[in-house]
């Protein structure tokens, strides 16, 4: 896989699968940029990657704020000279029954999960166009197919799929590919915070009887982000142990 020496920014990479992806990319010689909203968490991940011998920088920025996003990419390009790979990973959820969902619950989730992807992609593409090269990988969710209690989250993540497909068509001729990964259940801090009986119920519904790990997402991100993947564009590839097959559009 040819990815060594590329510059990759992973949003929301101080935790969970973003962190796992950044760490594994750094192991493969990618210059990685850790972004998150919390300075302490960013510093910790940066430190870990440096200690393991990786090349890395950290940028604290809220991806829902245009000015912060602009400044973030400027800082990356000032440091590394370019931006080859953008992984739109930062995301939040506020699960609630439909009638309990406040306007604020709706706005917050749509802002981080969808508008953040728009803002970061637009800024990254300004540089990628100049380079004639770019790889954008968006982390959606299997939940975009629909899930009770997830009206805001599923709508935002469906938007990510649609945004991926449109950008793929617009940017394909400029050497920029845009692809999407909807993860299924992945072992992250969120999973561990669930009550035991909830976990059991979820596990039973898995075709493989188990959940995935951040590593599963990381290797799929690298599949799309490598030099060799130039003819793979506009695709949505579930990493979900086959659970997407139970939905009729998966």
């Amino acid at each position: 896989m040819q990815i060594k020496g590329r510059v990759a920014l992973i949003t929301g990479s101080a935790s969970g699968m973003g962190r796992g992806t950044a760490e594994i990319m750094a192991q493969h010689g990618v210059k990685t940029v850790i972004n998150d909203v919390n300075q302490g968490m960013v510093d910790e991940v940066v430190k870990g990657i440096k200690e393991a011998g990786g090349e890395v920088m950290g940028v604290v920025a809220d991806i829902t704020k245009k000015a912060e996003v602009e400044a973030m990419f400027k800082q990356v390009v000032n440091t590394y000279g370019r931006i080859d790979i953008l992984v739109n990973n930062a995301g939040i959820f506020r699960d609630k029954a439909f009638l309990k969902m406040t306007e604020e619950d709706w706005d917050k989730v749509l802002e981080v999960d969808l508008k953040g992807v728009f803002l970061c992609s637009q800024e990254a593409v300004k540089y990628m166009r100049e380079q004639g090269y770019g790889r954008i990988v968006n982390i959606s969710s299997r939940a975009w197919l629909g899930g009770p209690g997830q009206a805001n989250y599923s709508a935002a993540k469906a938007g990510v799929v649609a945004l991926t497909r449109t950008l793929a068509l617009e940017l394909g001729k400029r050497g920029i590919t845009v692809n999407c990964i909807p993860p299924g259940l992945i072992e992250t801090p969120m999973w561990h915070s669930l009550p035991e009986e909830g976990k059991e119920r979820l596990l039973k519904a898995q075709p493989m009887g188990r959940i995935g790990s951040p590593r599963d997402i990381a290797r799929t991100v690298m599949f799309f982000a490598s030099d060799e993947a130039g003819y793979i564009n506009g695709q949505t590839l579930y990493v979900c142990g086959g659970k997407s097959l139970f939905a009729n559009i998966g």
């Binding site: 075709p207 599963d216 003819y231 590839l237 086959g242 997407s244």
Partner: peptide, 13 residues
């Protein structure tokens, strides 16, 4: 080992 049942197009989009 966690990717199954999927169809990926390799078609330039």
């Amino acid at each position: 080992d966690y990717v199954t049942g999927q169809t990926i197009f390799i078609c330039g989009g």
